[in-house]
Design a binder for these strands. Structure first.
Length: 464
RNA sequence: GGCGUCGUACCCAAGUGGACUAAGGGAGCGGUCUGCAAAACCGCGAUUCGUCGGUUCGAAUCCGACCGACGCCUCCA
């Protein structure tokens, strides 16, 4: 049995079988670039990264597309209040997004299509939907999708819209739709949109939100692809609407597996600005937590489980990360510059890891496998029971695990020649039992945030 | 109201009806090693899985009720 994942579409665990052998076409919903992404957004992005890294670990050729929503109601509102152009505003938050993604060691998608670069593609899809009788134009120049024209509407979210009640918000909606649940494919221009509009066959206006993901996913991955993922809140209406648009336009199945990530809570409740528990990545970095600990914390809770972010949790993660990184340093001290290719020595450990991750990305169990192995390695090192060849083989497996985790081989320390000389001097001082000089040198390194640890195999250098 | 999730030690967290007298991490306590420090190793730590019932030879796992926390139900990861 290979990788199984929980498919929201069927509400069942399913074995993953790619449409094209050895290749995975993956789409994930990206950010709306009107403010700094918050830590909850990164829970999703780290989950998607885990899924992608594990697919790569299994040897798949992964083709990954993530959209950038750079036009929508909130963006336009901010452009108005801050008197900046759409491009200027979204450029700021696009680069902020990419910076944070890099800080958290998230592998970039192959393509990051932006909505505003695909206006004509979206219009073409809307045109097809009108032509096939799935959409209609209203008097204000908007185009709506007619959900009654798609018999499978509700297939993903299991929402039955015939029994829903009109909410106040819907009743006050200014757009002129035939059915309250019909959603906008194209929004006709309104006064408050200012100069943010594009020409279309239906008059000037701008695209609806859902249409961009249908358009861009199909453009870059084909009309039928393997996995579509995002946060649970996107199941309805966003992903439901994507299915409706795509299936009605092409007449083909759209996505095989829908995989959704649960939300992140902060201090036990939903993050919100008014409660003061709203964090962006920078807030946590400023509190002194390092990116690796943050990534580790976001990674270690199963993706379908709510994750509660606390400062205590961040501290605990730092400890766990240190344990993972320490075994690497110990092994490297033993192996020296000996490098071994991937071998069968620790095959059982790797198989256990794969067994865990194959079961719906059970990372907690996978980490338990790694930690058990680390204790065994440490024991062997204590008992002088491991040679440099085995140590080098262990490093090779540790590196392989870290292609999935991306928390172990981090923070290389670059020492100056002078520093290296000082470390040698300290070794000599220690041999001569000159503890005063040895401690002086250690204090010096402490001041430049480097910790020296003495081991039987020599001095190990760590970041504080 | 509809759809859905969760409740496991001080904290985080896995658990695929039977090897569970319940992984793993963090914190704690005791010990070993060590010039000191750190790391590492060894040991201790849930007679119990929200509560109460039921099914079963057997339940953390299945079923029911209740208690509690939470998500979605028009643009939010």
């Amino acid at each position: 049995m290979g990788l199984t994942l929980y498919n929201t579409l069927t509400r069942k665990m399913e074995e993953f079988k790619p449409i094209e052998k050895g290749r995975v076409k993956l789409y994930s919903c990206g950010p709306t670039v009107y403010e700094y992404p918050h830590i909850g957004n990164f829970r999703s992005f780290v989950f998607i990264d885990l899924l992608k890294r594990y697919l790569l670990f299994l040897g798949y050729d992964v083709h990954h597309v993530t959209n950038l929503t750079d036009v929508d109601d909130k963006i336009i509102a901010r452009c108005n209040t801050e008197k900046v152009s759409l491009k200027k505003l979204t450029d700021i938050y696009k680069s902020a997004f990419f910076e944070d993604m890099e800080i958290l060691s998230i592998i970039p998608a192959d393509v990051y299509p932006a909505a505003t670069d695909h206006i004509s593609d979206m219009q073409e899809l809307v045109r097809i939907l009108i032509e096939k009788g799935h959409a209609y134009v209203t008097s204000d120049g908007s185009v709506f999708f007619d959900i009654s024209s798609f018999k499978d509407y509700g297939i993903l979210s299991k929402v039955d819209l015939t029994g829903s009640i009109r909410t106040e918000r819907v009743l006050s909606d200014e757009y002129d739709k035939e059915n309250v649940h019909d959603f906008a494919l194209w929004k006709g221009w309104k006064e408050e949109d200012g100069d943010i509009w594009w020409d279309s066959p239906w008059g000037k206006g701008r695209p609806g939100w859902h249409i961009e993901c249908s358009t861009m996913s199909m453009k870059y991955l084909g009309e039928h692809f393997d996995i579509h993922c995002g946060g649970v809140d996107l199941i309805f209406p966003h992903h439901e609407n994507e299915i409706a648009q795509s299936v009605c336009a092409t007449g083909k199945p759209f996505v095989n597996m829908w995989v959704h990530c649960e939300h992140l809570l902060v201090d036990g409740t939903k993050m919100s600005k008014s409660l003061g528990n709203y964090y962006i990545l920078q807030d946590l970095l400023e509190k002194g937590y390092d990116p690796t600990s943050i990534r580790y914390l976001l990674l270690t809770t199963h993706y379908r489980q709510k994750l509660n972010l606390t400062e205590e949790g961040l501290r605990a993660s730092a400890g766990a990360v240190e344990r993972l990184q320490d075994i690497r340093l110990r092994l490297e001290a033993l192996a020296g510059d000996l490098v071994k290719k991937h071998s069968k020595t620790y095959k059982e450990v790797e198989d256990q890891f794969i067994n865990s991750l194959n079961r719906d990305l059970n990372i907690s169990e996978g980490l338990a496998v790694i930690f058990d192995w680390i204790r065994e390695l440490n024991r062997q090192i204590e008992n002088d029971n491991i040679d440099r060849h085995k140590a080098a083989e262990a490093i090779s497996l540790l590196k392989r695990f870290d292609t999935v985790l991306a928390v172990i081989f981090k923070g290389e320390i670059i020492l100056s020649d002078n520093d290296r000389q000082l470390i040698r001097e300290r070794e000599e001082a220690r041999l001569k039992k000159d503890w005063k000089r040895a401690d002086e040198i250690r204090d010096y390194f402490q001041k430049i945030s480097i910790k020296l640890e003495d081991t039987p195999n020599g001095t190990v250098v760590k970041k504080v």
